[in-house]
Design a protein around this nucleic acid. Structure first.
Length: 434
DNA sequence: TCTGGGGTCCTAGGACCC
DNA sequence: TCTGGGGTCCTAGGACCC
């Protein structure tokens, strides 16, 4: 049996912990560059604000409906997420942190009434961390996910599902007929693993509800569609086919990409940005004690503008797998120079670390070239860099090609409404007045 | 004027091997 | 006239997720 616990409107809920005055009001959190809405309070959803709606289209709602827009504050959300996850880890034997605002918990061996346990856990999460959430419980991850979706919908939208499934929905506690009824009331596209494309295809075949999908023959599904959808069908039927993945295995790929605050044309500006992104990516890599064998740099113009379009990625292999800032920045800059064409207005750049290896299992090499022994100082230098930046704050020490005039960076992003980093920055702690 | 960032997995097809 | 069979590895691209 699995539980899926998911924070409601997570980013907005994080902001509300420190701004109780935002409760009951329409609030959105904007993406980097204040580009578009990436989290919405229920009041904002009720105004018809869509996920991903561009901010400039929403701006009139500030006047007309008291909409509050906040710039994304990922330092805050990440820290709130850590608090939430460590509390939820106590719910069962194993936990998979699936995203910043949700986790699966394996309930194997957990006794007692699981529904009640779910209610207690979400009350504790609300009281201790301040985040409202919903809990779904089911025999497989896909069913737990579905149960969570049902709990959420029943909480905020009356009529579609029985009201007692609000907040906590435990499918395994339902009678077979009640179970069938909730699956029949769920559109096939709402099932985890069925996206827009598959959803449309399935509907065209007359498979409209989650129940319809669950009643298909898995082998046929594999032949007609894919092994991925076959697994989903088996999971809906109650056969666990997607394993719980505990943390600690590290990422297979690391990316740092950003849109620019304004279009960038000059190579030196792009070099600054790519240096910063590559440095950030190298830090992430070292945090999981990894090494990258390849570095990809990518630049592109804005697809939303009526201007000549250009997009190019370039992969540079490293001489040997490395987690050092210096080596990674050099490779990323070489990739940038290979991808760059003058005369375009670039809107975004990114650095990807690929072909990652873990610290313990790294490919050795034959010493063909004795004039160039394996360097050791680079790794030590990067460690010192990390320790200094950890102790004295981000960017205390950095690579010079990142540019010295931080304020003059033409490409830096817009964040006009960012809240304080209440929990991760000494200067921005909330102050209590007696 | 103004539209995010970071991931995973699977498949098809090409290059190459014997 | 007539030209096999079986396999691996890598990459690009698609679909999905939050």
């Amino acid at each position: 049996m699995y539980a899926l616990i998911d924070g409601n409107n997570f980013y907005v809920s994080c902001e509300r912990v420190f701004r109780p005055d935002l409760r009951g009001r329409p609030v959105v959190v904007l993406s980097n560059n204040d580009g578009c809405a990436i989290s919405r309070s229920n009041e904002a959803k009720a105004l018809g604000i869509r996920m991903g709606a561009p901010w400039y289209q929403l701006r009139p709602l500030v006047q007309s409906h008291g909409l509050v827009a906040l710039s994304a504050n990922f330092a805050l959300y990440g820290d709130m997420s850590d608090r939430m996850m460590s509390l939820l880890a106590t719910l069962g034997a194993q936990q998979e942190v699936y995203s910043i605002d949700e986790c699966f918990v394996d309930l194997a061996g957990v006794g007692g009434d699981l529904t009640q346990r779910g209610h207690r856990m979400r009350e504790q999460l609300l009281q201790w961390v301040g985040i409202p959430s919903c809990v779904g419980i089911g025999p497989t991850k896909t069913l737990a996910k579905l149960a969570n979706h049902i709990a959420k919908t029943a909480t905020y939208q009356s009529g579609r599902y029985p009201a007692q499934l609000a907040q906590v929905c435990n499918l395994s506690a339902l009678s077979p007929s009640a179970w069938q009824a909730v699956l029949a009331a769920t559109r096939v596209g709402e099932v985890w693993g069925v996206g827009r494309r598959l959803g449309a295809q399935l509907e065209a075949y007359g498979i409209r509800s989650a129940l319809d999908l669950a009643q298909l023959d898995p082998t046929t599904v594999r032949r007609r569609w894919s092994v991925v959808l076959e697994r989903t069908v088996r999971e809906l039927q109650g056969t666990a086919s997607i394993e719980l993945e505990e943390g600690g295995h590290g990422k297979r790929q690391i990316a740092v990409t950003r849109s620019f605050g304004q279009p960038v044309t000059a190579l030196p500006d792009l070099e600054e940005a790519v240096t910063v992104f590559a440095s950030r990516a190298a830090e992430k890599l070292r945090r999981q004690h990894g090494a990258a064998a390849q570095v990809m740099t990518y630049i592109r113009t804005s697809p939303f503008r009526q201007a000549p379009q250009y997009s190019r990625a370039s992969v540079m292999p490293l001489q040997r797998p490395s987690g050092e800032t210096g080596a990674i920045v050099r490779a990323a800059l070489a990739g940038l120079r290979a991808a760059y064409r003058p005369g375009f207005s670039y809107a975004k750049a990114g650095v990807f670390l690929l072909d990652l290896q873990t610290g313990e299992a790294q490919q050795g090499e034959l010493g063909f070239d004795e004039r160039e022994p394996v360097p050791r100082h680079g790794a030590r230098l990067s460690n010192v860099l990390d320790r200094l930046n950890q102790r004295y704050g981000q960017d205390t020490v950095f690579v010079a090609s990142a540019g010295l005039g931080g304020v003059q960076r033409v490409w830096s992003m817009k964040q006009e409404h960012r809240s304080p980093r209440y929990t991760t920055c000494w200067n921005e702690l909330p102050v209590a007045h007696a």
